[in-house]
Nucleic acid binder design. Sequence first.
DNA 1: CAAGAACTGATAGGCGTATGTCAGTTTGTG
DNA 2: CACAAACTGACATACGCCTATCAGTTCTTG
Lengths: 347, 347
Amino acid sequence: MIQARLMGRVTIEDVAERAGVSVATVDRVLNSRATVRPRNAARVEAAIRALNYQPDRLAARLARQRSYRFCFVLPRGGNIFMRDLATEIESHARHLAGERVSADILYTDIFDPEALSASLLSVSGKYDGVALVALDHPRVREAIQHIASHGAEVVTLVSDAPGAARSHFVGIENAAAGRTAATLLGRYLGGRRGKIGIIAGSLALRDHAERHFGFAQVIAAEYRDLSLLPVQEGRDNPERSMELAAGMIAREGDLVGIYNIGAGTEGIIEALQSSGRSRDIVFVAHELNEITRHALLDGAVDVVIAQDPGHEARSAMRVLMARCDKAAIIAAQERISVDIFVKDNLP
Amino acid sequence: MIQARLMGRVTIEDVAERAGVSVATVDRVLNSRATVRPRNAARVEAAIRALNYQPDRLAARLARQRSYRFCFVLPRGGNIFMRDLATEIESHARHLAGERVSADILYTDIFDPEALSASLLSVSGKYDGVALVALDHPRVREAIQHIASHGAEVVTLVSDAPGAARSHFVGIENAAAGRTAATLLGRYLGGRRGKIGIIAGSLALRDHAERHFGFAQVIAAEYRDLSLLPVQEGRDNPERSMELAAGMIAREGDLVGIYNIGAGTEGIIEALQSSGRSRDIVFVAHELNEITRHALLDGAVDVVIAQDPGHEARSAMRVLMARCDKAAIIAAQERISVDIFVKDNLP
DNA sequence: CAAGAACTGATAGGCGTATGTCAGTTTGTG
DNA sequence: CACAAACTGACATACGCCTATCAGTTCTTG
């Protein structure tokens, strides 16, 4: 092992010496703890640059004795994806116990602006960071503002609230996800002519609306032989989605594709299979889980567009931690990608 | 901020007290520093479990005064992907400077077993961890063994050497990548009948051979209307690949698809475009970079199968660090996925 | 059962930073 | 020029763990 002394690690003492001041003064500059005469402050800054001083993050966190408490606000009784997300958050929180981080999960009705904002306010002031699956609503923005102004970091997760005081959004670009679905569905159909059915949870959900927008855009622009049926809202519910899909299949003789924007995929698979037209209808769904995974292998689903809940959980925590100790975040690492899965590249 | 004392962080002192021994003994057990009577060792283990003690990794690294030195062994004069990988390694190394980690890059001819193993031996003993783009060859395995037996951790990067003493492989499953390419190409062709041209860097490269295997497997099993032309070796060179592609296009009137297993994609694009048959031939390539990115947007390439060099660089460093301080690695986080890109889900 | 071997406890000092105190020095102001 | 205000330096303590030392205790073994 090579020891640090051999590497000549630069410490605040070196900076102090070089700047001709005491370590206390360097500390005052570094942590803006008290006013320092401009001349000395400048010297310190210069010494820092000259020596390329980088504070030791390990020592800093140890000394600061900070243990970060984060709160994740998730939908109560959510779909499979949300349950997977919760599992990932718990598992990563356990892992981070050795790094002085703890995370609680608060379940609430995120579709009700009043309930969500009440939950947010109830949490305000008690945590160093809050991650929430947001609803784009004035009340919610207000609650986020409240948390932020009480000194906590806020990030939105999966679903964003663009105008709000959140410092980061951990999630995918949903319009791009919709466009991706359209391109794959269109290319898989390879020039066939016909109708495409679309099922969403609810177009009142920002992410569903955005996916629909992206999907419709690409189909209109690039696949003139395909036409879209009006969106049906299945509320992410398998039974309801099954009925909607069955209705579509029965009504439209030239149905060649289905795009499920939200959850409830198992219902649509059932409708397809019991209709006997499963092989003729290209089906694109969202999110990778036990159901869609098996469906891909069976051929019941042709393509899955997904976001990785594990990545999102870890990313949210890393971003919160980084913001809490004012460190830089690695943009490329924290970017959540629009994943495409076929039967062959499953994890 | 919530202080640690409120959280009741468990320290070795708590463990010692609970086990009825001194902290020195706990330390002896934890770091197997000297022999401890079995009875006491068992008590300590029990106390650790009972209290769910987790050593503070920050404090440990600080005290140990370790600064990890890693070496990355990459191909000299590599293709775009390898250059991107090098850039990512440098950039992440800079980022980790504040966490007592440094990384050097050593360029060598990784296709020559003698040269590669000589480079590995020259590096042996000087680093805490080595990551290399491996060649699957006895000489190389021997060199890896040598490094490992001198106390350094070894991981393979992008290309594996399965029998060797590396503790981890950071890269994709190449057979799965090949299968994925075949499925997308097959589905994009939507039942069209014809020939598929395959260009590889060299089938002597393990990753290329594996991709080819996976690709051929799926085409044979699922796309009876498609037949494969013999693999042409372009040595990852754009000019040579262009000539090979141009030849194929001219010779085979019913060429409906091209799969480029390695680099040199720009050459193939040129051949396709100057032939005027670009729109009729589905083209699947590997790795996302400026060239393939533009080609996707242009429509010159239909699908790109990729691995993320940034993820690989960060993952290699995290794995090396984790192994150096005997910490657990997060499997899901370190798994490198076979990414699929179309024009709509580009980062 | 004595002598040596094997083990254990107490303690000190260190890693690089944070935070606070207090006496001492410089600066600005009237 | 005096006096308060603003600034600075030196030092102490803490964070949790690592490493080493040394005296003291408990085991082996002949």
